[in-house]
Amino acid sequence: MTVVRPVTFDAAPFLAFMPMSLVFADSGVILSIGPTLAKLRPAEEMIGKHVTEVFTVRDDGRGQGNGPIPLDTKLYLKFREGVTTRLKGMAASIPGTGVNILNLSFGISIVDAVADYRLTAGDFAHTDLAIEMLYLVEAKSAVMEETKQLNARLQGAKVAAEEQAFTDTLTGLKNRRAMDHVLERMLRTNVPFALMHLDLDYFKSVNDTLGHAAGDTVLQAVAKILMEETRSDDLVARVGGDEFILIYNRFTDHTRLVQTAQRIISRLEVPVPYQDTFCKISGSIGITTTDYYKVPTADGMIHDADLALYSSKYEGRAQATLFDPAVHHDNAVAYDASQDKR
């Protein structure tokens, strides 16, 4: 014969020991709750209710016992109402009393929970590692933030250094290295493009008569014109003292290329003011495009643009010439460029 004893279990010391715990009867009704748990939900919303009315409980099918919630196994709980707050827990029965104790902890929700419920150090058991955990998270976040900023600074410095290494400092145009790089990439990806080789005419006489400062002014004016005559995904590089290479991305229409080159030349011929005088120059251009080649190569295209450029010089300068395989490969090097530097 079983004797039904009245519940005489004193929960107070347990709840002081485990402030996130609650005591429930075998029937599942919550009898008392710990002080920290009371900060999550008011006592009247919990005491007298069934555990599963307050929480959803999941044990991944590994628990034991026929009680309202599985005993002696890891539990995952969430509040049914309000902020869900994921909790970890474990329940055990206290023999001979008809009551059970369910101890809870925040697990990974600790950081949010401390903010959501305004918890303080006093809300955690002295043996709980929660404060150390919070300390670690804060310290880690501070270090991480510093690392992030350092990364951003280093990345910025790296980009700037690379940019400098690819830039002609006088004109702000790209340099030969940058051009080699871009040309190689475009050839690799089989993008159609045009390559223009521009050599300034009469630049040397500006340098000789008016000095290098005048020459620099002219080069800067030329750079500005060339930038205006190209689009953002084209490339303008200064590859020698007064030599420039322009790469027109996906632009191979021969007629329009010659027109563009002629427009550049006529703009170059507009005298550049320098102190109380004007600097007068012009330019010669040779053009080639990828559609002349079965397998275009950087060296081959630059060479052919050169041949076309020499034709322009030979024809009396201030001209634009389109590469013509029939003409240029037969009379290769008909013109000696070194004689032009006057």
């Binding site: 991944d60 099918g61 994921r86 697990g107 990974i108 929700s109 950081v111 998270v137 880690k140 976040s141």
Partner: peptide, 27 residues
């Protein structure tokens, strides 16, 4: 397997920007 339910939360404690997939394991 069941700890995978918590993987996203755990990873975010360490690296809040890391895009860990949301994993749900059921028996």
């Amino acid at each position: 397997l069941f700890s995978l339910n918590e993987l996203e939360g755990r990873a975010q404690l360490a690296l809040p920007d890391l895009e860990v997939p949301t994993l749900k394991v059921e028996h």
